[in-house]
Design a protein around this nucleic acid. Structure first.
Lengths: 236, 236
DNA sequence: CTCTTATGTGACAAAACTATGAAAGAAATT
DNA sequence: AATTTCTTTCATAGTTTTGTCACATAAGAG
């Protein structure tokens, strides 16, 4: 269910909308898609929320009490801290806006109410995709053991190794951070993700499996146990 | 593997938009980004310009005097000379989302006014990037599997394969980007286009059908599943 | 050497993913 | 307008992977 190529941490979305019904609706739809949502009814609240938990994207209503959404967007663009947060504008269907003025908006996308949640989700994801930095895709090689994130392949002396997703991620992490010991907890954080509830001993099992798949090629000896501490990837 | 950044020659962009203010504004923004721009106020002018200097991309206003943008887009698609020129539609915000959906048949992307120049540039570049690498009109051949974008034809060892449009596009993309894994989302972005609201699972179905049509010739094994990530085209 | 604690392993049910057939919807053709 | 071809979605079946246990082993401490 989770997006494989995106970051492990959930994206935070701030909804700035004065109508509670719509706000809740948006929040619910996004939540259900696995996003983390903050809500604000006006620019004032929004500012507080942005400071405390920095959102990855802002859904901004065009009409806000006090300050129009477009002015607020412009203001967000003028502050270094918020300049790079993508904004999707929400506008009511009837509103006729000055086109040229609109062109200058700081928004990255634009949705006209009423809209389907499907469309909303699609746009939110599209914008986040555009903005998310590309994952590290460089090929890593150690003594004939090659891991290529781009093709999702692991080869030992040119020969393809069949490897499961978690083993791949584990090996990827290890091979990218060699010679250093990691506790089970640290491995869970880095490989499984920060908010994952999994037994520590599960790491052992995956270490075992990784060793098993590397064994035919003799690379299992690189996965080393450091008793009472954790595991390490080392070529020594 | 990086996308070949062949920006030696500037990309030419044709702007078809009746409102002069917007046309100039777009032209200026694109020019500043290093693009070469032609401008046209209606379909008539556009046709002339296309003949004389063939653009690499067309920005097309939804509402044109005389002929609607969508009709014009469809017409461009029916002529071999212009079939492969990507089109980005400019739509005013009033237009219904489902109408926009319909337009996706002809356009590669669309932008809803108002939009930021940042957004415009990003989309233009995205579309060009997509096209420069995959819609090369040169014939591609891999171990007897031949794909000819010019004639929309695929042959296996000289024998014609019947293939549907989407399968063709999918295969075209794959064959032009071999070995690398693509998530379903990425495939949707590249093959279907960035703003298409289609279920991820739909990709599976098309993969399946592509495999089925390639199966009689043994090429189905090139379409590989990478569990928990996506699919890849590989001859290994 | 014995006890205590930490790690290695095989097994297995649950969970996650993918393949596939079929139906409903759209679009293109005739 | 009717027919045919493609697309998309849905439901379901089929596989693979994962997280935990329970127990076997191994490493240290005293």
């Amino acid at each position: 269910m989770l997006e494989p190529e995106l970051s492990v941490a959930k994206d935070k979305i701030l909804i700035v909308e004065d109508e509670e019904a719509i706000r809740d609706m948006l929040g619910y739809a996004l939540m259900k898609e696995g996003f983390n949502c903050d809500e604000a009814a006006d620019a004032e609240q929004a500012r507080n929320t942005i400071e405390s938990s920095r959102p990855n994207l802002i859904l901004l209503d065009w009409m806000l009490p006090g300050m129009s959404g477009i002015d607020y967007a412009r203001r967000l663009r003028n502050v270094p801290e918020t300049r790079d947060i993508p904004i999707i504008m929400l506008t009511a269907k009837g509103e006729e806006a000055d086109k040229v003025r609109g062109l200058e908006t700081g928004a990255d996308d634009y949705i006209t109410k009423p809209f389907s949640t499907k469309e909303l989700i699609a746009r939110v994801k599209a914008v986040l995709r555009r903005y998310s930095s590309s994952t590290d895709t460089s090929i890593i090689e150690v003594n004939g053991l090659v891991l290529d994130p781009e093709t999702y392949r692991v080869t030992a002396n040119g020969q393809d190794i069949e490897i499961s997703p978690t083993e791949f991620k584990l090996l990827h992490f290890f091979i990218g951070h060699p010679e250093r010991v990691y506790s089970r907890t640290q491995l869970l954080d880095h490989v499984w993700g920060e908010n994952v509830y999994v037994e520590e001993r599960t790491v052992d099992v995956h270490i075992r499996r990784l060793r098993k798949t590397l064994e035919p090629y003799g690379f299992d000896r690189y996965i080393q146990t450091v008793r009472s501490v954790g595991y390490r990837f080392s070529t020594r």
